[in-house]
Each structure stands twice: as C-alpha cells, then as structure tokens.
Computed example of a mutant assay.
Amino acid sequence: MFLNTIKTSDGATTQRKRVGRGIGSGNGKTAGRGHKGQKSRAGGYHKVGFEGGQMPLHRRLPKRGFNSLKSNKVASLRLHALVNISDSPITITTIKDNGLIPGGMKQVKLYLAINDSIRTKLDLEGIKVSKGVKREIEAAGGSVK
C-alpha cells in the first residue's frame, strides 16, 4: 500500500451543490429557492417561532413563572425524627416549628426506617403515615387521626 493509492470508499464524499449555474445543473434559475416570497430573497428570513404576523404561540400562552404545577408539596419523614417532639398532638405546624421540614410543604408522610421502633407515646393529627408507622405508634400506645 502506498499513500498515492489510498482512496475514499464509494459514497463517502460528495461534491458540494453549485446552485444557480444553469438549467443543466438541476439547480439553475431559482437555485432551489422556489418562486418569490420572503424566503427566496437574499437576506430575507424570519426568526424562529414567527407565524407570519399572527401572535406567536409563546406570546399567546400565559406566563407561569417558575412555580411548577407538578411540584410535590408532600414531605417525607422518618418516624424516629418525631421522638424528640414533646408537643401533643403532633401536627404539620409542630413539625415545621421544630425545623424538620421546609415551610412550603403542605403535607407530611411518615415512613418506617429499617431499625425504627419507638417506645414513647405519639398522637398524630393530619399527618399521613405508612402501615408500618401506624403499627409502631399504636403498639406504643399512641394514635393516628
């Protein structure tokens, strides 16, 4: 093999299209731009989203800011986090006041960690709980409302 014998494989390279070079080239006369109109002119084009003067979709729709409609307002919390709270009954505001969840949360759900077991009596109001948490709280003499 010599350097002067190396060729590219068939179809690997194509010649560039030379537009506006006569009828025989297949791209003569209008040079592939069609007839008349803004897109056929030199320098004539419009921005992305332009709808011919009609109010564009991105301006027709209402502004929503950065508040996601899908955002989850339910905080997850492990059961052992509530052991140090002395208030009774424990509500969402109690949990927020103790700094266990952020202020923007609307609901709380308690889950059971692997080695979670409590001996203190807990009374919960307005808090979602898993089956395991409910079983643990009731075994310790507490209640879930």
Rank of each mutant, 00 (worst) to 15 (best):
G28R: 09
G28T: 10
K29N: 13
T30R: 02
T30G: 00
T30I: 01
G32A: 10
G32V: 07
K36N: 13
K36A: 13
K36D: 11
K36W: 06
G37M: 08
Q38F: 05
Q38T: 11
Q38V: 13
Q38G: 14
K39N: 13
K39I: 08
S40D: 00
R41Y: 04
R41P: 00
A42P: 02
H46N: 14
K47Q: 10
V48S: 13
G49P: 06
F50V: 12
E51F: 05
G52T: 10
G52D: 08
G53M: 10
Q54G: 11
L57G: 05
R60E: 11
L61Q: 12
P62T: 03
P62Q: 01
K63D: 00
G65D: 11
G65L: 13
F66N: 15
S68H: 04
L69F: 13
L69A: 14
L69K: 15
S71M: 15
V74A: 06
A75D: 06
S76F: 07
S76L: 11
L79M: 05
L79R: 02
L82D: 01
V83Y: 08
V83A: 06
N84Y: 02
I85K: 02
I85R: 00
S86K: 15
S88C: 10
T91Q: 04
T94A: 05
I95M: 00
K96F: 09
D97P: 00
L100A: 07
P102M: 02
G104Y: 06
G104W: 08
V108Q: 01
K109L: 04
L110G: 01
I114V: 15
N115E: 14
D116Q: 04
D116K: 04
S117C: 14
R119F: 11
R119V: 09
K121M: 09
L122M: 10
D123T: 07
